[in-house]
């Protein structure tokens, strides 16, 4: 070490690895350099999942259709729950489509470290590549499912007069962004914790189920008293879903206050999650 200091160390090193990096070394440029890998992972998700199936990507439509049928029967026909003046089938398929997007992202990103440990243990690439690719493939899947939703929507639009689309529909990308970022943050946070404490996998499984009911997917927020509504709307999923419903149908709760609140919270949450994720990725192989 002594002689190292005597020679002027002005060499350029491309990479210096130390035990701990500073809190905010989020190297987005590095993630960008691996954009091809992200796209190939997305492609893999689609090609690999439907190999050796007859229906192939049609499965993407079968699942929401059947679930909608069951929900319509259970919650609307039998339990007679309100659907806020929206035709029940449309209400449930709408809830389904956007909730599935959120839950899919959450479930898959939360397994980032555990399910990829074989690859992560052998090769280095920015670990964020994996959750990013999950969000993108979920987004593509959502896009396809929106086509199905549109078919129902147009049917009801022309056969009933219950649907009144609002100009806030133009903000749909923003709602989807909030939902995506929220599920990504939650997912990578969970995946960081599960590397050490597997308890979180159990927690997540039923938390997602419970969250579905707390997120007003199968019944509208308007079912509750105003007091409860005010609390529920702080849930980014609820305020986004309500905003989407309102934009499409004119029924539902739309609030600039809650939307800007959840936007802010979601991005703060994202930063915290990414910091924790980055700290975990450095040596999670030792504890996974």
């Amino acid at each position: 070490m002594a002689d190292m200091k005597t020679e002027p160390d002005e060499e350029h090193w491309d990479l210096v690895v130390k035990p701990k990096s500073s809190l905010f070394t989020l190297n987005l440029a590095e993630v960008w350099a691996y954009k091809d890998l992200i796209m190939l992972m997305v492609k893999r998700d689609f090609t690999a999942i439907y190999k050796q199936t007859v229906l192939g990507p049609l499965w993407m439509f079968v699942q929401p259709l059947f679930t909608t049928a069951i929900y319509t029967f259970t919650f609307s026909t039998s339990a007679k729950l309100s659907t806020d003046g929206i035709p029940p089938i449309l209400f449930y398929i709408m809830g389904q489509t956007f909730w599935n997007y959120f839950a899919d992202c959450l479930n898959k990103t939360s397994g980032t470290f555990i399910s990829n440990s074989a690859v992560f243990g052998k090769v280095y690439f920015p670990r964020l590549v994996m959750p990013f690719s999950v969000v993108i493939s979920s987004l593509i899947k959502l896009g396809l499912q929106i086509l199905l939703l549109m078919a129902f929507y147009l049917y009801y639009y022309f056969t009933t007069d219950q649907l009144h689309p609002q100009w806030t529909l133009a903000l749909l990308p923003a709602y989807l962004l909030i939902l995506g970022v929220f599920s990504l943050s939650l997912g990578i946070l969970f995946s960081s914790f599960t590397t050490k404490y597997r308890d979180f996998t159990f927690l997540l499984t039923f938390a997602v189920q419970l969250l579905m009911f707390a997120s007003c997917v199968v019944f509208p927020v308007s079912m509750y008293s105003e007091k409860v509504q005010n609390i529920l709307m702080y849930n980014p999923v609820v305020s986004c879903m309500e905003a989407i419903k309102y934009s499409l149908t004119g029924h539902g709760l739309f609030s600039w206050y809650y939307l800007s609140f959840v936007l802010l919270v979601t991005f703060i949450f994202l930063i915290i999650s990414v910091v924790i994720f980055n700290r975990t990725e450095k040596s999670f192989m030792d504890s996974v």
Partner: peptide, 22 residues
Amino acid sequence: SRTTAPTMGEYKIKGRIASLLE
């Protein structure tokens, strides 16, 4: 190959590095 971080010390690298652990 950066699949785990050292507990102490450091190393420096010049150029692109690829690892073939498998």
